[in-house]
Each structure stands twice: as C-alpha cells, then as structure tokens.
Amino acid sequence: MPVLATGGAPIYNSLKAIRLMRHGCANRPFYHIVIMGSRRSNKGTYPVIEQLGTYDPLTNVHGEKLVSVNLDRISYWMAQDKVKIAVGVKQLLGLMGFLHIHPQSYITAWRVRAIAKREALSKQQAEDQEASMG
C-alpha cells in the first residue's frame, strides 16, 4: 500500500480545512498553507494532509512579502467535499486573483486608510497649534 502524504497518519472522513500553519520560531513567523483536519490546532506540529504553499509575512530587502501556492492542488482540494478555507488563506487567494477579493481585505484597507487620515489630521492640527502659539 502506498504511504500517504501524512507520513502514515490516518485521514478520517471529517471536515478538513485549508489554513495557515505557523512555522518559523519565536519572533520570526513563517507560515505553511496546509490542508488538515479542521479540528486540529494550527499552532502545534500536528500532522497535515498536504502542504499547499508557503507565506512569508516579513518583508524582504526588495519590500516584498512572498506567497507561494500550488494552484493545482488547491483546486483539487476545493473540489472535494467537506473542505473549508480559512479567512487568511481566502484573503491571500483573493489578493492573488484566484478567488474573489475577501470582504475582510476591503475592511482592512478601509481601516488603514481611515487611521492614516486621522493621523494626518491630528498632525496638521498639532502643527497649526504650534504655529498659533509661536
């Protein structure tokens, strides 16, 4: 019998999830995009069914964050029953143009813009105050 990609761990016919699994070490996050039993925690070293990609959340010298996705296998797993996709992965796939853009991405973008605007406003006010004092 061929050995499963899990390394021999059993796969039950239960809900599975495509999600980010934290690898790396303290203060240096690195994520694997994996498919695993949805009841497993994604924080420990639990057996996964298959690794589908990686996500490096720290910017490199060129100001890029790197995501790699095995689109063939992701399509395969999305076509299966009882597979859900975590929000983080949905956002990444949305930004990639593989899925629709996730609403959470729009919310995030809106928040960032709002905070930047508020900051600029408060900065302007502080400057005006200083000018009037001086």
Binding site: G63, E64, K65, L66, V67, S68, N70, L92
Partner: peptide, 8 residues
Amino acid sequence: FKIVFTDI
C-alpha cells in the same frame, strides 16, 4: 510593501 504570489 507588496505581495508576490507564485504558482508552484
């Protein structure tokens, strides 16, 4: 920053 997506 920007995000670079690669199909592997």
